[in-house]
């Protein structure tokens, strides 16, 4: 019995594969002028079997789920009450709004308001002198160039989200001895002192969020077909925290002092 079944299965398989195989047909049709019939063009001229046609398309079995049809009579099993049971909140169409506690003063109203939101607060990503020195040692960061927030981000010192900019901090300041030139949003006193003691400089530059995007991802604007935004001026009350307006597109060298460039021209 088992052998018979196996033989049957084998025969069925063979018949199926035979059906699917495309036999080349080498009949040559009469050639009309001026276009002769295409014969033996491409791979072959097969029999009439088609792999794909509009009338043999179908989706996978189980790809679509049948809709639950409610209220279509007793035979359907979801007739009178449509599977909702009898009476009550769950049997009705609308549920009370989110946070409604049946008329009792809801939690969000019962408790007092607390705290406040400062719309002017800025959060900076910290970057320590230690990690900068490490990446210069490893040769990832070029100590000759100006170090902007873009270079810091490209090296991977900032992480994925920059928020409102980068603040240079002084961890590892006592061992820092590289004459580097930085352009960052903010800098701690200790870090500034350490950099300047090593013969470098730190400039606190102002970028808005859009400006930071233009600094770190100028290709995003090119892809959208937009121009790079102009650098934003800092608000007057930020004057103490900021030295210069951030330059766009991303600078690679320190700005030439105006006086010296005038001298050169003369």
């Amino acid at each position: 019995m088992r052998q018979w079944l196996q033989r049957k299965a084998y025969e069925a398989m063979a018949a199926y594969t035979r059906k699917l195989q495309l036999h080349p047909v080498s009949s040559i049709a009469e050639a009309p002028t001026p276009f002769p019939a295409p014969t033996a063009i491409g791979r072959s001229s097969p029999s009439g079997f088609k792999l794909l046609a509009l009338n043999n398309l179908r989706d996978n079995k189980g790809a679509t789920k049948e809709k639950r049809r409610l209220g279509r009579g007793i035979g359907s099993g979801r007739g009178k009450t449509c599977g909702r049971g009898h009476k009550g909140q769950k049997a009705r169409s609308n549920r009370p709004r989110l946070g409604f506690e049946g008329g009792q003063t809801p939690l969000r109203i019962r408790l007092p308001r607390r705290g406040f939101h400062n719309p002017f607060s800025l959060t900076f990503k910290p970057v320590n002198l230690k990690s900068v020195a490490e990446s210069v040692e490893q040769g990832v960061l070029d100590s000759g160039d100006l170090i902007t927030m873009k270079t810091l981000k490209d090296v991977g010192l900032v992480g994925k989200q920059m928020k409102d900019g980068v603040k240079l901090l002084g961890a590892g300041a006592d061992k820092f001895s590289l004459p580097l030139h930085f352009e960052v949003s903010r800098v701690s006193k200790k870090a500034k002192a350490a950099v300047e003691a090593a013969g470098g400089s730190v400039t606190r530059v102002h970028y808005t969020k859009l400006g930071l995007k233009a600094l770190t991802k100028p290709e995003w604007f090119a892809k959208k077909g937009r121009l790079l935004p102009r650098p934003a001026q800092p608000a007057p009350k930020m004057a103490r925290q900021v030295d210069e307006v951030g330059r766009l597109p991303a600078p690679t060298s320190r700005p030439q002092p105006v006086a010296s460039s005038n001298l050169e021209q003369e």
């Binding site: 047909v25 009949s27 049709a29 009309p32 001026p34 019939a37 295409p38 001229s45 009439g48």
Partner: peptide, 12 residues
């Protein structure tokens, strides 16, 4: 006409 003839010539 000629195009029609050509297409008739294609098998199946």
């Amino acid at each position: 006409k000629e195009m029609a003839k050509y297409i008739e010539g294609i098998e199946q």
